[in-house]
């Protein structure tokens, strides 16, 4: 950690706070993944780590490298954009897949299908 010796204390404190905040939110999300009972409840847990959990660590990293190299280091923004675009896609697809599988097995406590005319085509839905 010798490279961080010339970092001002305020930057070190702020970066530590952001990184610890992000890491603990990610851990809470992972705990939720194990603790919650049903699949649809667990669908909410990973987005904790992917939104402010990741944002905390990425902001901390931006601050750390920008102050350290005394120029704006912004390439972490790419990961942030990528995560906000991809996490919804994954979770939406998983939610739909789970609903599709549960419906084909006639599981209980499922919502009624949105289309009532009998035909269940899912190719045109987002």
């Amino acid at each position: 950690m010798n490279h961080a010796a010339d970092l001002p204390v305020w930057a070190a404190l702020l970066a530590s706070f952001l990184v610890l905040l992000g890491a603990s939110l990610t851990l809470v999300g992972a705990i939720g993944l194990v603790r919650l009972k049903t699949f649809y409840d667990r669908l909410h847990a990973p987005s904790l780590g992917a939104t402010w959990g990741a944002a905390g660590i990425l902001l901390g990293s931006i601050l750390f490298f920008s102050v350290l190299q005394s120029r704006p280091v912004l390439h972490e923004v790419l990961i942030a954009v990528f995560l906000t675009v991809t996490t919804p896609v994954t979770l939406m697809l998983l939610g739909r897949a789970a609903l599709y599988r549960d419906r084909s097995e006639n599981a209980v406590d499922l919502p009624p299908p949105l289309r009532t005319d009998g035909e269940t085509r899912s190719g045109d839905s987002i």
């Binding site: 950690m1 010798n2 961080a4 010796a5 970092l7 001002p8 204390v9 930057a11 070190a12 404190l13 970066a15 530590s16 706070f17 990184v19 610890l20 992000g22 890491a23 660590i57 750390f64």
Partner: peptide, 12 residues
């Protein structure tokens, strides 16, 4: 600042 960071990053 090196000590603060090294500990908090370790915890993270």
């Amino acid at each position: 600042s090196a000590t603060i960071l090294s500990w908090s990053l370790l915890v993270a």
